[in-house]
């Protein structure tokens, strides 16, 4: 790990109770959900991590109730120091709520809308919580692991007539 990153991670471990993992030269820091806005402000103002490169979420459909279901992932880049750090926020419990990061980075606005559209995670304090990629009257959150893919059976010659009858063609 880079020495500058090591110091930053040490400060985060003391202040925010973070844990850290490394994989293939990347640093993943686990932050509890309540502390994320303070950590982002700290990194953006004091260590010039001025670009929120990516923000996404992963669904770990858990086998037991103690594991968090979602991880919200923030990838920050510092242009002047040429460093990258990845923050992961485990979202626990039944209500999937995380405080919004729009006060720190404006790009989080659309990214959080996309995550709440695809995963159903609520961002408290978001100025514009509407669906962004799917139609407004869509039900469900597609990127969750219990949402079906919507796979339609391909029409080969052996099942051509059966599928042809069921397909909703438009006649005029």
């Amino acid at each position: 790990m880079d020495t500058k990153l090591e110091q930053i991670v040490k400060v985060l471990q003391e202040k925010a109770g973070a844990t850290c993992e490394e994989f293939r030269d990347e640093v993943h820091v686990f932050i509890p959900a309540g502390q994320i806005v303070d950590v982002l402000t700290f990194l953006c103002d004091e260590h010039q991590f001025s670009l929120l490169s990516a923000m996404t979420a992963v669904d770990y459909l858990p086998q037991d109730a103690t594991q968090p279901r979602f991880h919200v992932i923030y990838q920050l880049t510092s242009l002047v120091q040429n460093l990258s750090i990845q923050l992961r926020v485990p979202v626990r419990g039944d209500q999937f709520k995380v405080p919004t990061a729009t006060s720190v980075f404006e790009s989080a606005n659309w990214r959080e809308r996309e995550i709440s559209d695809m995963f159903g995670i609520e961002f408290e304090g978001h100025p514009d919580p509407r669906r962004i990629l799917l139609p407004d009257d869509w039900e469900g959150h597609p990127l969750r692991k219990d949402y079906p893919l919507g796979y339609e059976e391909p029409q080969f010659t052996f099942n051509f007539e059966e599928i042809d009858v069921r397909k909703p063609y438009v006649k005029e």
Partner: peptide, 20 residues
């Protein structure tokens, strides 16, 4: 024509479900 590579929830499987 038929949904192409994308056989999933988001793409209409063939535009002949909408227009002739």
């Amino acid at each position: 024509s038929c949904g192409g590579v994308f056989n999933n929830y988001a793409i209409v499987q063939g535009v002949d479900e909408v227009v002739p």
